[in-house]
């Protein structure tokens, strides 16, 4: 038994990336961008609003947070729903108290059921982003391109039906197909939250135009750390504060950095966890080195700052 000969051929073995979405750029290369007001760090708070159905297909894999036990898994259905009913309002109150704005990606198929929540997010002045159709519509390499195009179009039209025109996108489970970036750009999306290859927003070039990737930290994801990795709220808080300090440390070398932090309503919105979030928001709102805004404003600030530094 052996592998075919082409297993030992390397057609993209060359300088730079092995894909054409964005160029290679090591951290010290190129011009660094400084945000105005001596802000060394832009922080994007991402609050995913997802609905977990009782009977998911689980294809091509289970979305994080999907049902676990045999049907009807009301245990997990209702613990996830807790986030959309109760937990998210604790997050909204905490943001409001700290005077900070966040970005809320929402599953398009949940817009109808969660209409009062959508209004609360809007009226508080937060950004609404598209978060695919549902947690059971995962974009992935085996998805037919025409189907994916339809899903994106349906997502856009469900938002439009509610008078919303989001230009920021996060994919369900942050999973993509090879075509997702070009289809998102073609669909009118400007910013994507799936990629995290840098500490500044990175512009992708696609055949349908640019798509800016704002980095969102998987390694600080509250669900991953607090549930999957069983860390304590104190440890989660300490790691975020450590990241902020590290990223603010060398503005003269690297310019202003960006950090995206996920706040999952059914996780950090629990009564016993919300104090940890309040502590982070307190730190963020009083730290003069940090600029906390929604992702569209962060990307816009980088664009303006980079224009003024090149002119």
């Amino acid at each position: 038994m052996s592998l075919p000969d082409d297993y030992l051929t390397y057609p993209r073995r060359q300088y730079g990336m092995d894909q054409d979405l964005y160029p290679w750029r090591p951290v010290q290369a190129g011009k660094s961008v400084a945000l105005p007001g001596d802000r060394n760090l832009a922080v994007a708070l991402i609050v995913p609003i997802e609905h977990h159905g009782l009977n998911p297909s689980g294809k091509p894999f289970k979305h994080p947070g999907a049902m676990v036990t045999p049907y009807p898994d009301l245990r997990h259905y209702t613990t996830r729903d807790y986030g959309n009913r109760v937990g998210v309002f604790r997050i909204l109150d905490a943001l409001d108290h700290a005077g900070l704005k966040a970005t809320f990606p929402i599953n398009a198929m949940a817009l109808e059921r969660l209409e009062p929540l959508v209004h609360a997010i809007q009226s508080a002045g937060h950004e609404i982003a598209a978060y695919g159709l549902s947690t059971d519509h995962i974009h992935w390499g085996g998805l037919d391109r025409a189907v994916e195009e339809t899903w994106i179009a349906e997502t856009t039209s469900l938002f439009a039906a509610k008078g919303l025109a989001p230009t920021t996108w996060m994919s369900p489970a942050r999973q993509q197909s090879f075509a997702t970036p070009v289809l998102l750009a073609a669909g009118g999306y400007k910013i994507c939250l799936d990629w995290e290859m840098d500490e500044v927003p990175v512009e992708m070039t696609t055949d349908s135009g640019p798509l800016t990737c704002l980095p969102l930290s998987n390694e600080l994801d509250d669900r991953l750390l607090l549930i999957d990795r069983r860390q304590s709220e104190e440890d989660w808080l300490a790691q975020i504060l450590a990241a902020i300090d590290c990223l603010c440390a060398q503005p003269e070398r690297f310019g202003s950095r960006t950090l995206g932090i996920t706040l999952t309503p059914y996780v950090i919105g629990q009564p016993f966890r919300i104090a940890a979030l309040r502590a982070i928001l307190r730190q963020l709102s009083t730290d003069r080195r940090v600029f906390v805004e929604n992702v569209t404003r962060i990307c816009e600030a980088y664009r303006l700052a980079s224009q003024s530094s090149t002119s």
Binding site: L74, R75, T78, T79, D81, Y82, R85, V86, P271
Partner: peptide, 8 residues
Amino acid sequence: TCDLFQDD
């Protein structure tokens, strides 16, 4: 019922 966990 104590089976549903959607609220406080």
